[in-house]
Structures are given as structure tokens and as C-alpha cells.
């Protein structure tokens, strides 16, 4: 499997971990593994807006840091006990996050480089 596909899997793992942490268990995942970019969208019902949503948006929209990819990417989605959301932010180019009608939706974009 190519590294880029592995990265897509790890990003999904990390996002699922975040949803589980919000007690969201009915999760829909949409993956568009395109030629120019990967788009991953995760949605699920959530009774309350997560308190850290603004922070999450900041982190996931922070500048991509390619120099971290080859060295640290395997930490992403790996561990049961620790989040890697800062690392996730360094590996994606941007994100859209919405919370409407008790529905949490996170979409991340990762361009091919």
C-alpha cells in the first residue's frame, strides 16, 4: 500500500478516535481519494457542541508541516490513550467543521505533494 493511502487511513483513525471521545458512535465516513487531493469527511450525531471545536478548527487549519510527515506520521491514529490532533493539523492542508442540528461534521483536505 502506498504511503499516501496509509496516511489517509491514519487520518481517518484519528478522526474516529475524536468522535468516539465525544461519545459519538453512529459515524458516517466519506473518503474521496482523488488524484490531486484526499478529502475525508466524518459525520455523526452529537447532543452538545464539543467545547473544543474552535480550537480543533484552529489546529486543523494551521499550516501544513511536510517535514513532520516522514518522521512522525506513524504516531497518527496509533494509540488508544493519546490524541494526535496537533500532528493531524500538521498533515492536512485545511478543514471544515460544522455543528448544526446536533450533527457534528468534520471534513479535512490533504493535497498531494
Amino acid at each position: 500500500m502506498t504511503k499516501e493511502r496509509m496516511n489517509a487511513i491514519r487520518i481517518i483513525d484519528e478522526l474516529i478516535a475524536y468522535f468516539f471521545a465525544q461519545q459519538i458512535t453512529d459515524i458516517n465516513i466519506d473518503l474521496d481519494y482523488g488524484l490531486s487531493q484526499t478529502e475525508i469527511s466524518v459525520q455523526g450525531p452529537c447532543k452538545e457542541e464539543p467545547a473544543d471545536l474552535d480550537q480543533l478548527e484552529d489546529v486543523l487549519n494551521s499550516e501544513r508541516q511536510e517535514e513532520l510527515e516522514e518522521y512522525y506520521s506513524s504516531l497518527l491514529g496509533e494509540n488508544r490513550n493519546y490524541h494526535e490532533l496537533n500532528l493531524l493539523g500538521a498533515l492536512v492542508d485545511g478543514a471544515d467543521i460544522t455543528f448544526d442540528n446536533q450533527q457534528l461534521s468534520i471534513t479535512v483536505y490533504r493535497k498531494r505533494s
Partner: peptide, 20 residues
């Protein structure tokens, strides 16, 4: 349940370690 969700959220906020 609401309390639980709130607790988890603040826990994640701590994990994010992002200063506002």
C-alpha cells in the same frame, strides 16, 4: 450523559493544547 460529553470535550481541549 451531558456531563460526560462535557468532561470528554474538556479533556480533548487539554489534549489539543492550543492556546486561545
Amino acid at each position: 450523559m451531558g456531563k460526560s460529553v462535557s468532561f470528554k470535550s474538556s479533556s480533548i481541549a487539554q489534549a489539543l493544547k492550543k492556546e486561545k
